[in-house]
Design a protein around this nucleic acid. Structure first.
Length: 251
DNA sequence: AATGCCTCCAACCGCAAGTAA
DNA sequence: TTTACTTGCGGTTGGAGGCAT
C-alpha cells in the first residue's frame, strides 16, 4: 500500500506563516504543551498540517532558540562536528544550544561551504582540494565579498582547528556548558520556561521586522489575546505558579 | 527607474525510524 | 511478525530582498 499523506491536504494552507497563525500555535503549545502534532492544527484552529506546525514550532517559535548569524565559535563547532558526523544536522545541532538543524544546514550550504572551498578545503571530505582545481570545479570564483587576506586568516584558523579533531572524539561538547541544553532532550518545555523566554527582552525576535524586543510583541500577542497588560504588568505576575500564569494567558 | 540575477532562508517533501496494537 | 500510524531527518524548493547592470 502507498504511504498515506501526513494529513488531509485538501484545503490546508501552505507557505509562510502569518503572525496570527503563530499566535494560535504558540497559544496552543503554551496551554497544552507539545502533544500529538497530528491533532495540533485541528485543536489549535489552524488550517495547517501537523508536520508544518511541528516544524514552525521547532524551527521558529520555540522560545529557547537563538537568533542571528552563527558566531565564529559556533561556525568552527559546526565545521568540526561536520567533519565527525557528516550531514547529520540534527546531531550537529544538538551540540549547539539554541540552534536548529535547519538553521545549521542552511548556514552550512550558504556560508560555510563556500568559505571552505575558497580556503581550498573540500567541504565533503574536509581535506585539501587538489591544487589543480579549476574555477569551473569550484562553485564560484574568488569574489567581491571576501578579500584574500580574510580567506588566508580563515585558513589559518581552520588549520589550527583541524589539528584538534581526532577520529574518535569531538573536540568540544557544548552539552557540558551552560545549562546542559540538548535539543533531543527537550521535547516538552515547561510553561514557565516558554513564558520566560517570551517575556525576557533578550529572547529572540521573529523575522517579521526584528524591531521589537520579544516574540509576544512581534506576534501582536497582547492585543490579540485581549490582554490589558503591558510588558511590566506581565513581569509583575512572574512570581505566580505555572497554573495561574496559564490562566492569565488564556483568560 | 527598470530589469535581471543572485543570495539566503523558511518551509515543503518524501523517506526512514520508531512505536503501538 | 505485520500493519498502521507518528515523528524525525535531510534534501530541495520558492520567494523575498539585495545587488549589479
Amino acid at each position: 500500500m502507498g504511504r498515506q499523506p501526513c494529513c488531509e491536504k485538501v484545503g490546508l494552507k501552505k507557505g509562510p506563516w502569518t503572525p496570527e497563525e503563530d499566535r494560535k500555535l504558540a497559544t496552543f503549545i503554551l496551554t497544552n504543551g507539545q502533544c500529538c502534532w497530528r491533532a495540533v492544527p485541528k485543536l489549535a484552529g489552524l488550517l495547517r498540517c501537523g508536520k508544518s506546525c511541528r516544524l514552525r514550532w521547532t524551527n521558529y517559535l520555540r522560545p529557547d532558540l537563538k537568533r542571528g548569524l552563527l558566531s565564529e565559535y559556533e561556525e568552527k563547532m559546526v565545521i568540526d562536528l561536520h567533519a565527525q558526523l557528516g550531514n547529520r544536522w540534527s546531531k550537529i545541532a544538538s551540540h549547539l544550544p539554541g540552534r536548529t538543524d535547519n538553521e545549521i544546514k542552511n548556514h552550512w550550504n550558504t556560508h560555510i561551504k563556500k568559505k571552505l572551498k575558497k580556503m581550498g578545503i573540500d567541504p565533503l571530505t574536509h581535506k585539501s582540494l587538489p591544487t589543480t582545481t579549476t574555477t569551473t570545479e569550484r562553485e564560484e570564483p574568488s569574489s567581491r565579498d571576501e578579500p584574500e587576506e580574510e580567506a588566508a586568516a580563515a585558513m589559518a584558523a581552520e588549520t589550527s582547528l583541524q589539528s584538534t579533531v581526532t577520529e574518535d572524539k569531538i573536540p568540544f561538547d557544548s552539552m557540558e556548558m551552560d545549562n546542559n541544553f540538548c535539543i533531543e532532550q527537550v521535547p516538552i518545555i515547561e510553561s514557565h520556561e516558554i513564558l520566560d523566554s517570551f517575556i525576557n527582552p533578550s529572547s529572540p525576535s521573529t523575522s517579521y521586522d526584528g524591531s521589537s524586543s520579544n516574540v509576544l510583541e512581534d506576534l501582536q500577542f497582547l492585543p490579540n489575546l485581549d490582554w490589558e497588560y503591558d510588558h511590566n504588568s506581565i513581569m509583575s505576575i512572574w512570581d505566580h505558579d505555572d497554573f495561574s500564569i496559564l490562566n492569565f494567558l488564556i483568560n
